[in-house]
Computed example of a mutant assay.
Amino acid sequence: MEFRLSQLVLPSLQDKNDAFLLKELTNMWAKYKAMAKCLGGFFLYIDRAYKIDASLSDVSVRCFRDHVCTAHYQKFQDAAISLINQDRNNNPTDKGLLKNVSTFFFEMGIGKDNTHCYINFEKAILADAAIYYSRLASEWLACYSSVDYMTKAESCLNNEIHRVSEYLHQTTAAKLLQVLQWQLMGQTASKLIEKQKVENHDLATYQVWFNLQ
């Protein structure tokens, strides 16, 4: 397995970036799993007869994780988050690829030697989303009325629910929505209230001025 990874998988990932890198990664992972499954049939008897602690399935996942995922994790993560933001900005995005990448990170965390690849991926997604929506909230507060802000925030939440449900694990999607709610509504609550007071005061002043005409 290590030979296949070093001679076939790693060279195929070299010099690739962004979506091209992720497509090659998920393609190679699918082929690798198919190979491991075939070998598993041959070694199943040995696993049972000799009560080997680690099954071939666990060994194959650990091998791919150590030689491919761990070695290039940051590059895979950055490419995936870039695609997620591309989707947020309503640019054409391969959501099937994002689903496959999310599944890949999840599967990298399966087994006795769990290194929490998916947990790290999830943390990165949440941290990036917090930065993205904090910046968006600041822009909206500066450019829109409190009513328009609330309308845009609600629309944004609904869009995010629909979007991430297509490619993120259910538990991650729920955590992501909590981040959005805090960045768009919770953290800006006091500023929104103050903005609304100013708007109401300006409206009242305008009405007084209008009645004097």
Rank of each mutant, 00 (worst) to 15 (best):
S57E: 15
F64E: 00
Q74C: 04
D58K: 07
C63E: 15
H72W: 13
L56A: 12
R65Y: 05
Y45R: 11
V59Y: 10
I46C: 07
A54K: 01
C69P: 04
S57N: 15
C69G: 11
F64H: 00
F64Q: 03
C69I: 13
R48Q: 15
S60V: 01
S60R: 00
A49E: 12
K51E: 07
Q74G: 05
D58V: 04
S55I: 01
V68D: 00
S55Q: 04
C63F: 06
S60F: 00
D58H: 05
A54Y: 02
K51T: 12
L56C: 07
D47G: 04
A54F: 05
F42W: 06
D53H: 04
D66C: 05
I52T: 14
F64S: 00
D47T: 11
D66Q: 06
S55A: 08
D53C: 02
K51W: 02
V61L: 10
Q74I: 09
H67T: 07
H72T: 15
S55K: 00
H67L: 14
Y73T: 08
R65T: 11
I46P: 03
V61I: 14
R62H: 14
H67F: 09
D66I: 09
S57C: 14
V61E: 02
F42V: 09
A49I: 05
V68M: 03
R62Q: 13
V59M: 13
K51V: 08
L44K: 12
A49H: 13
L44N: 10
R62N: 15
D66W: 04
K51Q: 11
T70P: 01
D58E: 13
F42Q: 10
Q74H: 07
S55G: 05
R62K: 15
V61C: 00
I46S: 11
S60E: 01
L56W: 10
F43W: 09
Q74N: 08
D58W: 01
H67G: 10
A49P: 01
Y45K: 05
A71M: 10
F43M: 12
A54L: 11
C63V: 11
F42D: 14
H72N: 15
T70Y: 07
F42R: 08
A49Q: 14
D66P: 04
R65W: 02
A54D: 05
D66Y: 05
V59C: 06
L44E: 11
A71P: 04
Y73E: 12
T70R: 03
Y45T: 04
Y50I: 06
R62Y: 13
I46Y: 08
A49C: 13
L44F: 04
F43H: 09
Y50L: 06
D66F: 02
Y73Q: 04
D47A: 05
C69W: 08
R48P: 06
V59K: 11
H72E: 15
V61F: 02
